[in-house]
Amino acid sequence: MIRILGVGVMGLTLATELTARGHSVELVDPEPAPGPHGCSWWAGGMLAPYCEGESAEEPVERHGLTAIDWWQRQTGGVSRQGTLVLALNRDRGELARFARRSRGHRMLNSDAIAALEPDLAGRFTSGLFYETEAHLSPRAALTELRRRLEAKGVAIHRAPTAGKPDQLIDARGLAARDALPDLRGVRGEMLVLRCPDVTLNRPIRLLHPRIPLYIVPRGDGVFMLGATMIESDRRGVVTARSVLELLSAAYALLPAFGEAELLETGADARPAFPDNLPRLRRVGSTLYANGLYRHGFLLAPAVAAMAADHLERGIIPEFMDEVFA
């Protein structure tokens, strides 16, 4: 039996992958269901390997490309509408830079933008369309992973059972800092708006030199706005400044957002290693899977597959530390 600590995106993805490969799995978490205590609850849910490739290391794009099919297969609910990247007129240089540093896009003119997103008609003269990217609703996806695991008979306990596991996998995110000293928190803040007047079909990224913003449609006039990136492990409530910045960027994108209801604010700290890439690390007999940074939904399937390959065949996968503690 394989025991997995943590029912965030990493733990649930590991459990799903290992169960699918025929292993017997037990999940353990003091909070045994996905919820606001875990940072994946606050995620944007963009499956956007090309856009992330603009600033992330190369493996993020390569492994992220496999995530879209994985999530559709395991949870359904993946929306393959692509991503639209825009910049306000005075920041148009940002769009050229973003295009230069990412792949998988084509340039759209004003008419093409209006055809994709009628609500943005006339507001932007050019944009980048990443047609093959996708998005999902993180809370629905996590809840569905858990439901399917339970349906397959996977036990989810608040505390470890008496039996000794054949393998222990630790996927507790930032809580595993007690064993992973090079793990740090990167604070992110998000808002949820309801704005029935606005219809957007896909995630929109607004490039801005100081306040980059993304808006992910959740359906029914609900939108998620994110997300700050602050070198801090402070969790809990959002700051006024971050709300101000996110809302002003959304308002600049589309003034109709000024009429939105602010349904929810949230903040948490993403677990990250110094290179902002995930790691599998063996410490003693425990295998740690951690450091997914802002790429939880994008990279968890690849990390889970690597962990399974490692356990089954003993190979050292790409995201595994070379040095064993």
């Binding site: 740090r184 801090s232 402070r234």
Partner: peptide
């Protein structure tokens, strides 16, 4: 901005 929780980054 990092006030209150940036210790790991500052140590780095």
């Amino acid at each position: 901005r990092e006030a209150g929780g940036g210790q790991v980054f500052w140590d780095m």
